[in-house]
Write a protein that binds this DNA or RNA. Structure first.
Lengths: 334, 334
DNA sequence: CGCCTCGTCTGCAACGATGTATTTATCCGT
DNA sequence: ACGGATAAATACATCGTTGCAGACGAGGCG
């Protein structure tokens, strides 16, 4: 059915292996021979069967990307960047959605999915570091995202603490003194919600503004979580002149709720987020946020993972590069 | 290195082929034997090498999904639905981004990418039907999206005409008479911009409202295109009391621009879109739009493609199922 | 009691490429 | 013109699985 190397070899009057050598840019081939082979390839419309190559070589040239759901804008954008970075290095990306369920995450780390990839990029949500280490196989694994930090695992870090402090400092500089925080999870100190909250506190302390726990509202990191939390805050009578959503979805939910309730943003209440998703730029008013260097994260992660895959020497020490962040000041908090 | 069927066979004291038979649920195996094999699999942690299976069976159980860029929300959401639909049927999805460039689209249709998949789902943007037919290989191909329609190709259709008419009728019912249309491309009659414009005209005609070409503004189907077009319209002195963006990105761009310019939505000017992307629900004011049945599109497309792949009989007639749509009335146009 | 059928399991070849080792062609110096 | 080095091409085995055909033993039937 399909054209194989054998067909090409016959057409070009050389051995099968020579065709293979031409395709793999083997150094010592006479130009004339090479040309003959290339012509035959062209004429027959030959295409190398990547499946066969993978079986023989033991490499699939595919990276697995395990995340909750592509319909979440930040993940989609990150996935897009990761694919581009991988593509530029000769790798493809196979995405696996877990729907934020621990079982699916485990399955993705262990299951057959792995046999299709040379290594995994993983954005953990449900599993913690212990569980990840317990189920991870031998293939290279690089974590990214927000929730897991552990010195035993390769991962790309976001400067959660510093970036959150930068946002808070910006709000303080704008004269805000009662800054509500949405999305802090109680007891989380190592994950990014904890780190961001710490950054917030540090900035307050630096400015000599007292920390008020009543301003900190735990909720799901989604738009409706942000909206509900804001609604609760407005109803509770707690006074505040700014809202810091620990991610953009929260901030946008808050923004929406504030406008619906007739509050003026940023005049009465400033709003800021974290992530700089595409939508932040186009909200009304546009959202002040911090860009965690999404493209850089993608690049670093891909680079690190491919480095692991291609280095024979597996005994390298754990790497945890940090991506740079950037404050994006827009209308919602000048 | 890895555990193979051979290892399992030895451990269970059966032949390699019997292990294979167990894994593939071959009917005639004694329960005791089956159990012994399953135990050995469990004990050794065997996992079938999908690459080898693909090579031998000629099936990869992967579908290719070719689209412009996952960072565009509608595509990301569609991709997510497609992956879920494929997953439920035992297939994985390999995404290829083309960046809306004709060369990349061609490469995706022809190139090695295909050897990794059993069939392709393709959202064409740069190529037209002729070009697609010219470069498409023999593997199954199902189109989706908005821009190409052709009786020779399998595709899932959106009810562009009817849905656009429904939006327009809704705006008319709200008392609007001067409805601007953003994103119509001159000369496009077969593509969805043309069909949607026709739907708009038909609804006007039904209501006895005259059609004014000055209200129709061509522009890129992106947020900034919508913003720019709206800006132009406001500057031109043409009067209008509603804006119909031929997709949500356009409508959101328009919405943003109108608010920035101090126009009240929907009091002064109503806004409606097309697609019902996630963001439409959360815009301020939330966006009235039409949901083209994204999940249904994904399901139908996957079903059709897998049907093609698994039916031996390739001479089936072209299929073009239509997905149902639904008007979503929200604040921007009551 | 022998033959056939059926259920159960096995052996061999093959999918299409690449790695290793080896053979053949070409070039160089003397 | 010839030996030796090096360039160029080849042979063969192999990756881990599945398709096909067949082996083997146990019953059923005439």
């Amino acid at each position: 059915m399909a054209v194989t190397m054998n067909d090409v070899a016959r057409a070009a009057g050389v051995s099968l292996k020579t065709v293979s050598n031409v395709i793999n840019n083997y150094e010592f081939i006479r130009p004339a021979t090479k040309q003959r082979v290339l012509d035959a390839i062209d004429e027959l419309g030959y295409e190398t069967n990547l499946t066969a190559r993978s079986l023989r070589s033991g490499k699939t040239s595919m990276l697995g990307l395990v995340l909750a759901d592509l319909s979440i804008p930040y993940y989609a954008e990150l996935a897009s960047d990761i694919m581009k970075a991988a593509w530029a290095r000769g790798y493809r990306v196979l995405v696996e959605q877990t729907g934020n369920e621990a079982d699916h995450e485990k399955a993705a780390l262990q299951g057959q999915f792995r046999t299709l990839t040379d290594g995994l990029l993983f954005i953990p949500l449900a599993l913690d570091a212990e569980q990840i280490i317990a189920v991870a196989g031998k293939k290279p694994l690089v974590l990214l995202g927000e929730f897991v930090q552990d010195p035993r695992l390769d991962m790309v870090l976001i400067q959660n603490h510093q970036a959150a402090a930068a946002v808070t400092t910006h709000l303080l500089a704008g004269g805000r003194r009662r800054i509500a925080v949405l999305g802090a999870h109680d007891g989380d100190t190592a994950g990014s919600s904890g780190l961001r909250l710490e950054g917030y506190k540090a900035a307050l302390a630096d400015a000599g503004v007292p920390y008020d726990p009543a301003l900190v509202v735990p909720c799901d990191w989604r738009r409706d979580g942000g909206a509900a939390a804001t609604s609760g805050l407005l109803g509770s009578g707690v006074e505040f002149d700014a809202v810091f959503g620990l991610n953009d979805a929260l901030a946008l939910g808050a923004l929406h709720e504030l406008l619906v309730r007739g509050r003026k943003v940023p005049e009465e209440i400033a709003v800021a987020g974290f992530d700089d998703i595409d939508e932040a730029r186009f909200a009304s008013p546009s959202l002040t946020t911090v860009a965690p260097g999404r493209t850089e994260i993608a690049e670093r992660a891909v680079e690190l993972l491919i480095g692991r895959i291609e280095s024979k020497d597996a005994a390298l020490t754990v790497q945890q590069p940090e991506a740079a962040f950037e404050l994006r000041v827009r209308q919602s908090a000048r």
